[in-house]
Design a protein around this nucleic acid. Structure first.
Lengths: 345, 345
DNA sequence: CTGTTAGCGCCTTCAA
DNA sequence: TTGAAGGCGCTAACAG
């Protein structure tokens, strides 16, 4: 019994009784251009189908000097709870452009970063998407010099590289606009501002909120600063309420903060949205798990990932360096006076 | 100015003044075996380093008939909030074995599934990991016949393939053992059993719990069935409490159920763990966001992914078909009478 | 319109 | 111990 080995283009050509060249042209959809007889084409295609022929990608890559592979290196995108949708967007977009994505996760470790880059270069990738889980400034490793790179969810301090980020400023305005509907019953406070940190998304969101409120003639209440996690948010809001404050609306700078905020409100017997309106950012599943579901200005992770890949593979010559993607609203029932789109809870 | 092109093995050999053969032997660590002069080796290595030579993977693959690439196709692993750690484990393990992972996400759509498989076969992958986000039975597409396949987090109905799953039954016993410590103050109920469904993890967890309780002479209280999501869990537990029940311990079959359970307990003025002990499954970040942090029997996602890849690449001839990985405990403060490992909340 | 031919970069058998 | 040569499967001049 003969060992069944993968059929080659030569096998197909032989089976169809033509030369490799002809078979190659036909299978690469250049039959028309080459004016090949219809029945020849038919014969070759049939032979290819019968043999279940698949072009050998290695041979093709070797000949074409392109691996049709791109690298996606990130700090915590794959492992994190939220941003992994970026991967889905990226791989899907890549697939549509007939490329594959190799992912590498550095966990923020510069040594690992370097290692991953080495490996990608070893693999002769056609380009690299450099991503971060938190919208922030980065310094690109010098190993990436001269490589085709697109930044995803981050900005480079030094260079001007094609970059894809969410439009956090507009997102901030959106959030403010949402709460403005139920305005008139009290103060609007922002929960989650932080004194320092490379995550500029926080500042842009805050600025957007401030500007939109201002243009509506509303003066924001005292900020409630805290780290971007559940527990710190709980503590900050709890302390705030304990101090006797009676906010009408809380804009939480992300969904985990919203969760902590909900916990603190509950602790004080306050109900969302009857006593306090809440709007949040991120649009993660977490927002939908809260009671009532939180309205959240969403990070368009899948689109971000997809866009980065598209930009990497098909650069727009005259395009802007920085592409900002809009943040859609994920509607819950946490806003007083807002019309709820879906079914009630 | 000459266009700087990637150096080839020939370039290295020329620079070092040796033949390609010699260079190849040296760079493939076969210098010793071939008894090549030490200074020759030194010269070649230096030349390779100076030229920043990297073997062309396409050429190598072509020659060696192996792409050193494996496919990982799943329903919702990358996109989900929880299981994406499987990807990290898989890619890391693959990297250590000098392979890369191509991921594809079918969203459970059989048509997409087939498409993804086609693409992987087009890429001539060396093997495929077939994964699901929920521990369940699957029927492998026939397109995978004859391919090297390892099942990850699922079992095949028909075939006997190498399989990696969490040890849910033992996990169930672990959970029961945890609550047994604080036993003696009332009934233990399981929240989240469901009448039907392909997710056998639920049954195994329940059986493990039941058996462990039984062997400790404890008879479990009425089950509280509900779908595996926050809202349904809230409703089920809320109804249960409204019925006048006063449970001492609730074992939630996953972390989202635990979240809904917490919400219901709070609604009834019950405190965790003083009034009610809670233990949960999954070990997701969500468990750490609850107040107090929930003790959860964790799904070892990263290890699962890593193990699947290792099994794919280095099959153990005499090994068992099904590898069950232990579920470690992620300790919180939701158990009455339990010693808390870390700092208190 | 179709066939012949020459590599892409690498590994490896065979000679020297 | 090293060199020459062939071929992995494919594409694309270049002839016919």
């Amino acid at each position: 019994m003969k060992t069944k080995t993968k059929p080659t283009l030569g096998d197909v050509a032989r089976a169809a009784g033509v030369s490799q060249t002809t078979a190659s042209y036909i299978l690469n959809d250049r039959a028309e251009q080459m004016r090949i007889a219809a029945d020849t084409e038919e014969r070759v295609r049939r032979a290819a189908a019968e043999l279940r022929y698949r072009p050998n990608p290695s041979a093709r890559s070797l000949r074409l000097a392109s691996t049709r592979t791109i690298g996606l290196v990130s700090d915590l995108v794959a492992g994190g709870q939220f941003a992994s949708q970026m991967l889905v967007g990226a791989t899907t977009a890549a697939r549509e452009l007939d490329h594959i994505v190799v992912i590498g996760e550095s966990q923020g470790d510069p040594k690992l970063e370097r290692l991953l880059i080495e490996e990608l270069l070893d693999r002769h990738v056609d380009g690299i998407v450099w991503a971060t889980v938190v919208t922030s400034y980065v310094t690109l490793p010098k190993a990436l010099r001269g490589q085709r790179v697109v930044l995803l969810n981050c900005l480079d301090r030094n260079q001007q590289l094609p970059t894809v980020v969410p439009d956090e400023y507009e997102g901030g305005r959106t959030a403010a606009r949402l709460v403005l509907a139920g305005e008139g019953r009290g103060r609007v406070h922002v929960v989650g501002e932080r004194p320092t940190g490379g995550a500029f998304g926080a500042w842009l969101r805050r600025d957007g909120i401030r500007d939109e409120l201002r243009s509506a003639g509303v003066r924001p209440g005292t900020p409630i600063p805290c780290a971007w996690a559940v527990q710190p948010a709980f503590e900050a809001v709890d302390a705030f309420l304990r101090g006797g404050a009676r906010p009408a609306t809380l804009i939480c700078l992300n969904d985990r903060i919203a969760m902590g905020t909900y916990q603190a409100l509950a602790e004080h017997g306050l109900t969302v949205p009857d006593d306090v309106s809440v709007v949040s950012f991120d649009g993660s599943e977490l927002a939908t798990w809260l009671r009532p579901e939180a309205t959240s200005v969403a990070l368009p992770y899948a689109q971000l990932g997809a866009r980065a890949v598209e930009l990497l593979l098909n650069p727009e010559p005259g395009g802007p360096d920085v592409t900002r993607l809009p943040m859609p609203v994920s509607t819950g029932a946490s806003l007083w006076g807002a019309t709820r789109g879906g079914a009630g809870v």
